[in-house]
């Protein structure tokens, strides 16, 4: 079973986000594997452990992304592939085009990814890759079973779950709860630096800057407004309860 995992490096979820010069500042922020992609890596390793095979992690970005890939190698992935798009001006179209093109030149039975990245949260890339490759996709899986030629994914839908069977090759995206990602072991860490890390440019996979130019332009970035202070109702419980209900209905309009 050859499994590919599409992986994105994101800000640490505990990082404090600041904006400098109209862009989100990367200085002093520690970077991690997108947590949903980490579920995908873990699931790939579990499938490999039960069925045998090989796990390759694939990402697009600059050299800094190697840290995230190395982390996945330390967890137990066998190989890493990194395609540098040669620009910071990247949208979902760019990422999906680059990843799909890179993946199309590789052997695979199953592609796993997180259902979204925690940074921009657009949840588009895996779907776009499936479309370009012309293979089925199941999203938001909380359980995945793989057997010869097919996969069954239990996926989250509004108010319930849906069980989807897909012929392989296919893409499945991971939701929280799919598994508990392992820590990289000491042995894994020591082996990681000996595992292959293939670095490619656009030209190496048959693309050029024009073919991947972003279609979406970010006009501005803003931080969410600071949360306003809560409102305290003073007085006798009977009076304050009435006041709270009134405020919830008329001011907050939630009931």
């Amino acid at each position: 079973m050859k499994i590919l995992v599409l992986l994105k490096q994101t800000f640490d979820t505990e990082a404090k986000i600041t904006i400098e010069g109209g862009k989100i500042s990367r200085s002093g922020v520690s970077m991690i594997i997108n947590p949903y992609d980490e579920f995908a890596v873990e699931e790939a390793l579990k499938i490999k452990e039960s069925l045998g095979g090989e796990v390759t992690v694939v990402s697009t970005g600059d050299d800094g992304v190697q840290d995230a890939l190395r982390q996945a190698l330390a967890m137990g992935a066998d190989k890493a592939v990194l395609i540098n798009p040669g620009t910071d001006d990247v949208d979902e179209f760019t990422a999906a085009t680059v990843l799909a093109k890179a993946v199309s030149g590789m052997e695979y039975d199953l592609i796993l990814a997180g259902w979204r990245a925690v940074d921009d949260g657009s949840a588009q890339v895996a779907g776009r890759v499936a479309e370009i490759l012309g293979i089925p996709i199941a999203k938001l899986a909380s359980k995945i079973d793989v057997e010869a030629g097919k996969a069954t994914a239990t996926c989250e839908i509004e108010g319930g779950t849906e069980v989807i069977e897909l012929p392989l090759p296919a893409i499945i995206t991971a939701q929280k709860g799919l598994n508990e990602p392992r820590y990289p072991s000491m042995k894994g860490i020591m082996q990681a630096k000996k595992k292959p890390m293939e670095k490619k440019g656009l030209g190496d996979i048959g693309l050029d800057a024009g073919a991947v130019a972003a279609k979406v332009k970010v006009l501005s970035v803003a931080l969410p407004a600071a949360r306003a202070a809560g409102k305290v109702f003073d007085g006798e419980p009977a009076d304050t309860s009435a006041a709270v209900v009134k405020a919830l209905r008329e001011e907050a309009k939630v009931i």
Partner: peptide, 15 residues
């Protein structure tokens, strides 16, 4: 060394 940084981060998370 890079692997020591990874070790340190792993132990931090574990702790």
């Amino acid at each position: 060394p890079e692997e020591f940084v990874m070790l340190k981060k792993m132990v931090r998370k574990f702790t």
